[in-house]
Design a protein around this nucleic acid. Structure first.
Length: 274
DNA sequence: AAGAAGTCCTGGGCGC
DNA sequence: TGCGCCCAGGACTTCT
């Protein structure tokens, strides 16, 4: 599930290879993944554009193009974007192929078809639903301990679903949210406003640490995630609670529990995370 | 206004 | 072994 560290890794793995290249042709096999504009206009407008710079906002990957356009990709759960030599047979579930001016290609695949793409004029990006409402970037300077404290104190929802709310903090998903809460020893069901100052300080640090480690390990691969070169990340080895139901807590040895919060699995240690 | 539920989709895991 | 059922999950929309 590409979360912030995975999208950042895709960005880093691709930018050195494709910056400066021209998108010469777009083949779209699954038109419905394009949110805007129409599939034909999407392909036609992209053709001939130069890739100026890659960016990332939350879990969105951004291709800043010539003519003041930006291509926006969200991978959701199983989306992949892989740099491929010419005439590579598209893998199963390949929905789009971007041909580049050096002859190589970018293959976009997504088994579940949840991922989306959009092409916009760059100065209209703030109108794209989802992107426009994103909260603070957790690795930016804007995300300070005071900011987190102020924001958390005004919310009555449980801390776990709050961390997953992309309008609160951009880029955390189920894996890194659980890991941050475990590291900060906070129960996922605790009401956000009831966190102590100490807990918020620990959470602040934990969020940054788990994301930075995720990036350093080139992302977490369970089954589907790979970077722009098709390589899996190694951060699964570093996970301390996620997907470890029944296994011993690495702090105290008690079995990790799993509950459902807001329709999602939450893994936590009942002893360490009171 | 906040929060719950429904929606999209496929492969894997399970029970029998 | 093989069939069929059900679940996971991110974010948006719709309902309460």
């Amino acid at each position: 599930m590409p979360e912030l560290p995975e999208v950042e890794t895709v960005k880093k793995s691709l930018e050195g290879l494709i910056t400066g290249l021209v998108i010469t042709e777009v083949r779209l096999f699954m038109p419905k993944i394009v949110k805007t504009p129409s599939p034909t206009l999407f392909s036609d407008t992209l053709a001939g554009k130069t890739i100026k710079r890659l960016g990332r906002r939350g879990k969105y990957l951004l291709f800043h193009l010539s003519d003041k356009h930006t291509l926006v990709i969200h991978f959701r759960m199983t989306g992949r974007l892989v740099y491929s030599p010419p005439q590579t047979e598209p893998a199963k579930h390949t929905h789009a192929v971007f041909r580049l001016s050096n002859g190589d290609e970018l293959h976009y695949t997504d088994m579940r078809q949840f991922g989306t793409m959009a092409l916009m004029e760059t100065d209209r990006l703030d109108t794209l639903s989802g992107l426009k409402d994103l909260g603070v970037e957790p690795l930016s300077e804007e995300f300070s301990r005071d900011y987190l404290k102020k924001q958390i104190k005004r919310r009555r929802i449980k801390i776990k679903p709050l961390l997953l709310d992309q309008t609160f903090i951009a880029g955390l998903g189920n894996i890194y949210a659980d890991e941050a809460l475990h590291r900060a020893r906070i129960n996922p069901e605790k009401t956000a406003a009831n966190l102590t100052a100490r807990e918020i300080a620990l959470l602040y640090r934990a969020i940054r640490e788990v994301l930075e480690e995720g990036i350093a390990n080139r992302g977490t691969t369970f089954r589907d995630y790979v970077d722009g070169m098709g390589q899996a990340g190694s951060n699964k080895e570093a996970l301390r609670v996620y997907d470890r139901e029944g296994k011993p807590c690495l702090n105290c040895g008690k079995p990790i529990a799993r509950i459902r919060l807001g329709g999602r699995s939450s893994y936590y240690c009942p002893k360490c995370q009171k």
